[in-house]
């Protein structure tokens, strides 16, 4: 269970999950506010884990998955907002197709804890 919501302004990191649990080409969402909607999600591409707010730039705050953790297209090459089909590069978060073309997802910085847990850093 996460300790803190990175949106809350608190200084502590949120503990997400063991790093090895998110495999290449997979995504997982985290409901840090515990209000039934994922606050953020983590994607692993090219071996690298990256964190993003679950908020499409098209409509501020709009959740992106179509099912729990379903943030990617079928071959895992793009992050997709399943509201209107916007597609984002998983390396940069840049929208390359759809209503918010040219805009970007908001990054959530991640670090790795000494116990192998992925930590989401609070927003500055």
């Amino acid at each position: 269970m996460p300790d803190q919501d990175p949106d809350s302004g608190a200084s502590a990191s949120a503990r997400l999950c063991p790093e090895a649990e998110i495999v290449e080409g997979a995504a997982r969402g985290f409901d840090l506010g515990e209000d039934g909607v994922d606050t953020m999600f983590v994607v692993r591409t090219g071996g690298v884990l990256r964190g993003w707010r679950n908020a499409c730039p098209h409509i501020d705050g709009a959740p992106m998955a179509w099912r729990k953790d379903a943030y990617l297209n079928a071959d895992g090459s793009r992050i997709v907002c399943h509201a209107h089909g916007a597609e984002f590069l998983p390396e940069t978060g840049l929208c390359v197709s759809g209503p918010c073309l040219g805009r970007s997802l908001t990054s959530v910085p991640l670090t790795l804890g000494v116990d192998g847990f992925v930590l989401a850093e609070p927003r500055k």
Partner: peptide, 9 residues
């Protein structure tokens, strides 16, 4: 309304 795999709600 829900998100969907159809590129629309």
């Amino acid at each position: 309304y829900f998100n969907s795999p159809f590129g629309c709600h």
